[in-house]
Design a protein around this nucleic acid. Structure first.
Lengths: 192, 192
DNA sequence: TAAGTAAACGGACCTTACCCCGCTTAGTAT
DNA sequence: ATACTAAGCGGGGTAAGGTCCGTTTACTTA
């Protein structure tokens, strides 16, 4: 892919905007390829060409938010951004990530797909890299790729899977707080 | 459900056996509800009545294996079974779990489902409980429910998601070993 | 600026998960 | 043993995901 053709880019933007609208109006699992195409004034084939699969749509949506999140991490104010101690950054990162995932929970879940390989693998690459880097800077000597992957899983999974359904309840707040403190505790123990 | 009717139980057994056959012969994603029904000599409606959804079939398959695995953990020989130090058991548990997940990777992935809530939530309840108990016995003072959940994620996710596709390569072996050592390292750091 | 080409478009078509509802049968109580 | 009933059975119908390929359109190069 040298560069995306103008019409393709425009249609992608239209589709994503429409998807966002529908997401707000009717919820993720009411978004069908058919409905998305029609509401966007495009053909079904076009939708599939852009996103390949249904989860692909939500991967694209998630990607947007992910970019903004990365921005905050890479060049935002500390302790999330650069300038603080590695450990503090790691703790802040976990908290921020948990918040991000909760906000985008519906999208992230819809982006899942058991059939196609590595549902949200690539998207987490940055995250893993970042965790690994911070661990390194904090002086942790270990198989950092693996450790980063494991820690990343500890952030992703609870929000997305185990805790997904009962999140409407009032205990959502408390649960996320427990996850966040748990993360801080975990990180501190690791680097002791 | 007081007790399952005889014909229902028989059909369930037939369906599970057939599913296992097809799994070995043609792979998970070639198993359609239609094909499974026909090959079992049953109607499509029956299949759905038993397993509710397509992922449901694989949940059922996984459940079988899971039961056997739990058996080994609860009453097998140490260090996986009872009788060893909590820490050693935890390390052994991680290794065993990784092996189990790799063996059942195809099934586990097919059991995933982004639409329906908590794909493999209930199945992991036992696992989380066990990790929590061992941590407690090892004298770890923390929010054990949360920590156990996070550690469990560290076992599940790498095998099932991030590392799923390239597992056909020869580096699978080495990768699992890295995960296992990583787990041991992680656990040791936590309890230091 | 005109011809060429690679990409994008659109919608017909296929497959498959899942729903529905009338029929059948296994367990039970008299 | 027979009548009753709740559960199981089956297959037709629907909707949605995914593929294909002929047509159109945006960029490139001479």
């Amino acid at each position: 892919m040298t560069t995306e053709r103008a019409d393709a880019a425009r249609n992608r933007a239209v589709l994503i905007a429409t998807a966002r609208e529908m997401l707000a109006e009717v919820g993720a699992d009411k978004i069908t390829m058919d409905a998305l195409a029609e509401r966007s004034g495009l053909g079904r084939g076009t939708v599939f060409r852009r996103f390949k699969t249904r989860p692909g749509i939500f991967m694209a949506l998630l990607d947007d938010g992910e970019r903004a999140f990365q921005e905050r991490v890479l060049s935002g104010p500390p302790p999330l951004g650069p300038g603080a101690e590695p450990l503090d950054r790691l703790v802040a990162f976990g908290r921020a990530r948990l918040g991000f995932l909760r906000e985008n929970r519906e999208i992230a879940r819809a982006a899942f797909d058991g059939r196609t390989p590595v549902p949200f693998g690539p998207p987490t690459t940055m995250t893993r890299l970042h965790i690994g880097t911070l661990l390194h800077q904090a002086g942790v000597a270990a198989d950092l790729d693996i450790l980063a992957m494991q820690l990343n899983a500890a952030l992703d999974v609870p929000v997305l899977l185990y805790a997904a359904p009962e999140c409407d309840g009032r205990d959502d707040e408390g649960f996320e707080e427990r996850l966040a403190s748990g993360w801080a505790d975990l990180v501190h123990r690791l680097t002791r």
